[in-house]
Amino acid sequence: MTDTGLLKGLIRCLDLTNLNDDCDSAALAELCKKAQTPHGNVAAVCIWPRFVNEAKKLLAGTGIKVVTVVNFPQGGEATLAVEEETRQALSDGADEIDLVMAYQALAEGRAGFAETQIVRIKRICGEKVLKVILETGALKTPELIRAASELALAAGADFLKTSTGKVAVNATLEAAEILLSVIADSGATKGFKPAGGMKSAADAVAYFEVAQRVRGDKVPDPDTFRLGASSVLNALIAAIEGREETRGTGY
């Protein structure tokens, strides 16, 4: 049986997510309510940019951060539009930005474009946390995943995030190990966020165990470790309370 202290720590590291196409104000309100659990609040809610202002009001006084996504999910190359999207999100009150890297440009050998886009978005974010989504399932090879990780850190990423949750292959333990190894090798205090595909408490624990083994994490710390998921929260609560766990569906 997994230690309940660890499970509660993982709840505090969760970016509770609704990036469904049909998300509306009612779904947002439910998400923000769900983010406040008897076993502690999640780190953040991760939502579409259009809901940032509304989420800030719903979460006022809770300490829960508001995260939004830009250049999502395609990781396109319209940098000026992404810059404007980022400025608007920050103006609306976003605490953190999750940027999809222009991973297709990187895969095509145009690493400079992908790097420059991250640099420009980080400049806008300033002291705000910038997580860079590498879309590791689309990059496929360990070599390209490592190259993307190194590039993102060099360009100013505060966190490396595996996936959008919108492609066929999202977070994997193999990709997680590569991202964490690059962070460890850099010597910098940077964060790691697996996202997409986590359904059970065991899934969440497995990612933290990789962080423990590769990077030496001692306890789950939301400043350096996040879990991007919509359905794993119920599983973590069930495990803490000793109830039968039902595997979730969704992001």
Rank of each mutant, 00 (worst) to 15 (best):
A195N: 10
E96M: 08
A114S: 14
Q88N: 06
T141L: 05
V70M: 12
G187E: 09
C46L: 02
E143A: 15
I178D: 04
N18Q: 12
R213H: 11
G137D: 03
L28P: 03
V100N: 05
G191S: 14
K34W: 04
K218R: 15
C46G: 04
P194V: 08
T164L: 04
L7I: 08
F51D: 03
F225A: 09
Q74Y: 11
A43K: 05
A114Y: 03
V129C: 14
E143I: 07
L14D: 03
A29S: 12
A188H: 12
F72M: 05
T4E: 01
G191P: 14
E54F: 03
L173A: 04
I240C: 07
L144N: 11
A238L: 04
M198D: 01
D203S: 02
E245Q: 09
K166I: 01
G242R: 10
V67W: 05
G40F: 12
V210G: 08
C13G: 10
G75V: 08
P73D: 01
L19K: 09
S186T: 09
E135A: 08
T249Y: 13
A152E: 05
S181K: 13
K128V: 11
F72N: 06
L236Y: 00
E241H: 11
I133K: 06
Q36H: 08
V42E: 00
A152H: 07
